[in-house]
Structure formats: C-alpha cells, structure tokens
Nucleic acid binder design. Structure first.
Lengths: 117, 117
DNA sequence: ACTTATGCATTAGTTTCTTATGTATTGATA
DNA sequence: TATCAATACATAAGAAACTAATGCATAAGT
C-alpha cells in the first residue's frame, strides 16, 4: 500500500486512462478494478473518487449514462472527445514525469535501463 | 514543465535523495540543481521547499549547519542516520509506485520493457 | 544606477485529499 | 430469517500541502 501522497495527483490520470481502455465504467467498478490490478497497492477511496468524477464531468471530459440495475441506479462514465484527448495527454505526461524523476534519482542506486526488446 | 499536482508528494523524496547523493545542500541550491538536472521540467518553488525542509528537520530526518558567506548566512542541510534510511525507503517506494502506475496504464499504449543490460 | 541573482522566510487562499457519515439495495450465511 | 458483507451512490468537516505573493537583505552584473 503506497502512501497516499504519491497517489495524489494521479487520480485523474488513472480514471481517464482506464476509461480510454475500457470504454465505460462506474465509480465502484473503478475502485475495485484498480485494487485488483495493483494487487491492493493502490486503493482509491470513494471520498476522493466521486468528487473527481464530478469534476471531470463538470469540466466536460466525462459524460454519464444512468442504468437501472434492479432497484439501484448505476452511473456509468465514459470519455468525451475532449476527455479522450486529455487521457492521452495525461498518460504521456505521467510517463515523462516518471522518467524525469527516475533520472533525478538515478545516481542514488543503480536502475534498469529502458530498452525496446 | 510538469503540472504541479504531479510533483506534489515527491518533494520529500527529491530532497532526501539529493542529500543522500551529495552530502549537504542549502535550499536555494536544491531549487537550482533540480531545475538544471531536469532541464526546467521540475521547478521547486521556495514556498513549497522551505516548509518541507523545516518539517523534515522537525521530524529528525535533517540536521542543519549555518555558514557565513560574506554577510549572508547560508543554511546547509544534511541527512541524519534516520534521514538516510528514509531516503532509501522513499526512493524505493517511488520506483515501486512508478512501476505499478506503469502497469496500470500499460495497455493504453505500448511501453518499453525494463531490462538490465 | 538599476536590474538580476542569491538566499532566507512567511502568509492568505486554494485544491485535494482523509475520515466519517448517510442512505439504500442485494447477496450470502448461520 | 436475521444479520452481516458487499454493492453503489453521495456529502461534509477538517487536514495537508501546495501556489502566488510578498518581504527583507546582500551580491553581482551592465
């Protein structure tokens, strides 16, 4: 489980990237999916996720579809065109940042080199 | 220039790692060094850096030495033993986080594989 | 003389998180 | 069949950590 300050700032990136990959998802599904795919190392809390989803929607990056599951309403999110562009941008940005940080911390201990095999 | 929300949460890691590498540094030097080594892509502001240095010192991870440069006082920071341990830990943690994020975003676009050449 | 760089620092305000709480349905199980 | 866990949404008070601005002072360049 990573300290939360590391996950901060990547929440939008995670959400946008997953939606770009999977088409549409609902809030709870996102938390479960991230938990499973990271073996519990990243756990999104609802108090952080829902406000983020609402903000991305307000910013025009996400659109919603409501679906009735029995008596419950499930709220699916999907990317708008603008959201799709932002997803690419955010992911590219994170990777670049990650690489820059790696370089900055590089001399501290030896690190694997990147190579396209 | 990366959006600041990405840099958030890595400030302590950067500071601790640089001090582990270079022995001792003063605040202004840290800002300049980071700016140069990242080609301007990461720029630490003083409003973020100084409170962080003070906090790390209060937490017993850093110790200070005051040095007179002309009529100015320069404040050098260096790692305590505990700070040194924390530096390793934080760097390891960031790398692990970085890898986990990479895996999570992996399928969105193809990425280079890690290999020890 | 004036501007930029060096070097410390604080503060008001904002963003974004955490933790807790609230409501309700559904599935599992003792 | 009562009860607990899981599913699924949401908000709200408080904390953390930042930004942008400001302040002070010395030193160096032009």
């Amino acid at each position: 489980m990573f300290p939360q300050e590391l996950v901060k700032g990547t929440l939008q990136t995670i959400v946008l990237s997953l939606l770009a990959e999977r088409g549409r998802m609902y809030g709870y599904e996102i938390t479960q999916h991230v938990k499973e795919r990271t073996a519990g190392k990243i756990q999104l809390t609802e108090g952080a996720l829902y406000p983020t989803l609402h903000k991305l929607e307000a910013d025009g990056l996400l659109a919603t579809e409501h679906e009735n599951i029995g008596k419950r309403v499930r709220k699916y999110y999907k990317l708008t065109d603008e959201g799709n562009a932002q997803a690419s941008e955010k992911v590219r940005e994170f990777r670049s940042f990650s690489q820059t940080m790696n370089d900055l911390l590089h001399s501290f201990t030896p690190q694997p080199q990147l190579s396209w095999n």
